[in-house]
Design a protein around this nucleic acid. Sequence first.
DNA 1: GACCTGACGCCCC
DNA 2: AGGGGCGCCAGGT
Length: 115
Amino acid sequence: MKNQSYFEKVYFVTKKIPFGRVSTYGAIADYLALGSARMVGWALNHCHSAETGIPAHRVINRKGELSGRNHFPTPTIMQELLENESILVDNHVVKNFKDLFWHPGEHLEPYDEIA
DNA sequence: GACCTGACGCCCC
DNA sequence: AGGGGCGCCAGGT
């Protein structure tokens, strides 16, 4: 599966984020070695949320902030989903972000080997 | 085919 | 240490 669109690559990695953990746009971009974090967020925007099984709510910016919450059906969905995974959110920022942070590159094989 | 946009992040004042 | 600027690059128009 090497000819996936950029979206699918991002989705692929996003789906690997374990329940109860979070990752960042930058980490995913870094793992995929496809340049910019911006595109990751942009790619996720193209996906219509959890219907496709993509835990987009687990992807946040490098400050631990729920920067994408406004793109969900309602701005509270993202936080609700996180709290549903025992992730505490305070003022749109994930608590214990440092501990919950999950970097794809440190837990997955290189993308080329598993794609 | 050129131009614009975007759920970000680093580098430089 | 905080704030602003600029780079990233695929897709849509």
